Amino acid sequence: MSTPRRANRGPAAAADNRAALLAAARTTFAEHGLDAPLSLVARTAGVGQGSLYRHFPNREAIIVAVFEENIGQLEDLVANHESTLDELLDQIYTQLTGAVGLFEFLQPADSSDPRLSAVITRMHALLATELADDTHRGSIRADVTAGDIFLAVGMLGALLNKTPEAERARVAQRSWALLLRALRH
């Protein structure tokens, strides 16, 4: 069943269309992987492909935009001076399990896109900020680095990308519990 197209409101609809495209991309990539047709993203958002390409000229642009939105949510959390690393990790886990396919794109070693590199840098900075403050670090061991956490999240993302959807929630919960156990005192 396809999503009905919304009435064309011209330039006034730009912000709504962009938000709908980001939500649709997150859902589509989570369900079908990063190779899902962009036409499916547009249909899911209820907009035409022209609207998609006006906002996002290519696949990488929409993937980076989804990551930027995710990082913005994490930055908002960390901006609350009472937040803890445990809360940040919980939010990262929620984002990861909600958009498994996207995390295969987040590989720092082969990032030639400067926008993606900026997202990775922002993620490292968030983790480093929480790790640097003992009151925010919580139960995470003193020798754990932002790079360690980034690696653990990447490993979980890679595992979940290869896990059948029917088993994904169970595998995600079990794997996350094991990773947290390894990171904690």
Rank of each mutant, 00 (worst) to 15 (best):
M1F: 15
S2V: 09
R6N: 13
A7M: 03
G10S: 05
A14K: 03
A15R: 04
R18K: 08
A20S: 05
L21H: 14
A25W: 02
A25E: 04
T28N: 04
T28S: 02
H32Q: 08
A36E: 11
P37Y: 10
L38G: 03
L38H: 05
S39F: 08
V41D: 09
A42M: 08
L52Q: 01
R54D: 08
R54F: 04
H55R: 05
P57N: 00
R59F: 05
A61K: 02
A61L: 05
I63H: 00
A65N: 06
F67V: 06
F67D: 07
N70C: 07
G72I: 01
L74Y: 14
L74R: 06
E82F: 09
L88K: 06
L89M: 06
D90I: 00
D90C: 00
Y93G: 01
Q95K: 11
Q95D: 14
T97V: 04
L102K: 00
L102W: 00
F105V: 12
L106D: 01
P108T: 10
D110L: 07
P114G: 00
S117A: 08
S117W: 09
V119L: 04
T121F: 03
R122V: 11
R122H: 10
R122D: 10
M123Y: 04
A132N: 15
D133G: 03
D133A: 03
T135P: 02
H136W: 12
H136D: 01
S139M: 07
S139H: 07
D143I: 02
V144H: 02
V144I: 15
A146G: 12
V153C: 03
G154P: 02
L159N: 09
L160R: 10
A166S: 11
A172M: 13
R174V: 12
W176K: 05
A177G: 12
L178F: 10
L180M: 15
L183K: 09
R184P: 13
